[in-house]
């Protein structure tokens, strides 16, 4: 407990008991809380799996009373691509943190490795691409006859993935904010924590998707 590390501030020092930054402790507590949020959403999705009375269904074809045939609605190839995009965004994110932390070190100056603006922008773009895939998925589902009002699957699917998408959107805004700070004044190793907490959030959103991809898309 006594391993205190003073936090550099303007003139005075700020003591924290653990030597850790307050913001990082808070973001981990927040992530803990988010686990429960997504657990509630995923539980509901799983509870309602197979309970829908009318189609379209995620993994099974469905013939409506009027004789119209609906294919299984989930598009695995497209979602696999978007999953890959989100995984790669996590790679770009760790590169961004590494670039900010190692600013000025040999091997980082003037190289792509040390270009934090590039990596931040790449993460944001990959995140936005994921959102694009999601928008495509949602609109094509609506065209195929599945809306949030259609059945229990539609309600729970759109709410679950929509909540995840909202988290990605917030993450993209956060990344763009960091990028604008980086462009305006340059992020230095002293700002690493700002990038670190954003990265923790971003990776968490990524691992939630890992769970969703398996539970919703791959397991019928």
């Amino acid at each position: 407990m006594a391993s205190a590390v003073a936090h550099e501030s303007h003139e005075h020092t700020h003591y924290t008991t653990t030597g850790l930054d307050n913001r990082k402790v808070a973001i981990w507590a927040f992530i803990g809380s988010e686990c429960m949020l997504f657990a509630s959403l995923i539980s509901t999705y799983l509870i309602y799996k197979g309970k829908s009375i009318v189609g379209p269904f995620p993994h099974e074809a469905w013939t409506s009373p009027s004789g119209q045939i609906f294919k299984p609605i989930l598009n695995i190839p497209v979602t696999s691509q978007s999953t890959f995009v989100l995984l790669m965004s996590s790679l770009a994110m760790v590169m961004a943190l590494d670039a900010v932390e190692s600013r000025g070190k040999p091997g980082y100056v003037g190289t792509i490795k040390g270009n934090s603006k590039f990596w931040l922008a790449a993460t944001a773009v990959l995140g936005a691409t994921f959102l694009g895939y999601q928008a495509f998925e949602f609109t094509s589902f609506v065209h195929e006859g599945l809306t949030i009002k259609t059945n229990l699957f539609g309600s729970s699917f759109f709410t679950l993935t929509g909540f995840h998408g909202a988290h990605v959107t917030a993450g993209v805004l956060w990344l763009l904010t960091l990028l604008s700070i980086d462009i305006k004044r340059g992020l230095t190793p002293k700002d690493a924590l700002l990038v670190d907490i954003c990265a923790l959030y971003w990776h968490f959103v990524d691992v939630v998707w890992i769970a969703i991809f398996t539970l919703v898309y791959l397991i019928a």
Partner: peptide
Amino acid sequence: MNDHAPHADHQHEHPTW
């Protein structure tokens, strides 16, 4: 929120590139 300039704790190892 705490707006002090951060000072990340680098006592711990880091994953590498």
